[in-house]
């Protein structure tokens, strides 16, 4: 039997409309996760630099809890755990919420790093040059913070894409879920996964190149 396996990619590729539909679901999940995660991240970062003890403690607990437990378990809790409390979230909503909270914890630290990077000295320098508060914010604080935040935020976006495959486990019909489905119907699991493996890889390589380019053009070092 050795060497008898013949690859048949056509058996997989004829399911392309389903793969496309899966890609659409994945894209929706990824983009909304990034938006929601950034909102959580902004609030988290404000909390993490707050002088109020409770606010600081709550946001720190949030960050540490979500960064030190698996995304899969977070999804299980929001999907099966809340279900046990008679709170029924759809698979998509549970995945979106888990992924956003998870990403938000990482984004909290990224955004906090950006805010801290803008030193007090830079504000003082801007004010002593006669800039108004708005000018300082627009010309010094935001450009510099964005310059610090942009590269890790790009990595985080790719992290969200990689993590989105986990949503398949709680039956969200994104690419990995569709692949399992096609695989079991065509008996071509290996080929199906080779196909989506390449899809993920190409997508991530293109995006990371785009992020690098954008970073170089729009957020070049100003200091």
């Amino acid at each position: 039997m050795r060497g008898s396996y013949t690859f048949d990619f056509m058996a997989v590729l004829r399911y392309w409309p389903e793969l496309l539909q899966g890609a659409y679901v994945a894209a929706t999940l990824i983009i909304f996760t990034f938006i929601l995660g950034t909102v959580f991240g902004i609030f988290g970062a404000i909390g993490r630099i707050s002088r109020r003890r409770t606010v600081y403690a709550v946001s720190t607990f949030y960050v540490e809890l979500f960064r030190n437990t698996p995304l899969l378990v977070q999804m299980y809790i929001l999907y099966y755990g809340l279900d046990a409390l008679s709170i029924n979230l759809s698979a998509f909503t549970a995945a979106l919420l888990a992924m956003s909270l998870n990403s938000g914890a990482y984004e909290t630290e990224i955004i906090r790093g950006g805010i801290i990077a803008v030193g007090k000295g830079q504000l003082e320098a801007a004010f002593s040059l006669g800039m108004t508060y708005t000018q300082t914010l627009r010309r010094v604080v935001i450009p510099y913070a964005l310059q610090v935040i942009f590269p890790p935020l790009g990595n985080q976006f790719i992290g969200i894409i990689l993590g989105s495959s986990v949503a398949s486990v709680i039956t969200v019909p994104e690419i990995t879920y569709v692949a399992l489905n096609i695989g079991s119907r065509s008996y071509r699991d290996f080929e199906t996964f080779l196909v989506i493996w390449v899809i993920y890889l190409v997508l991530n390589l293109i995006l990371s190149a785009l992020f690098k380019l954008t970073g170089r053009i729009a957020f070049q070092p100003i200091l």
Partner: peptide, 8 residues
């Protein structure tokens, strides 16, 4: 590093 561990 560019593909999901689940897919791998």
């Amino acid at each position: 590093r560019g593909t999901p561990i689940l897919v791998q």
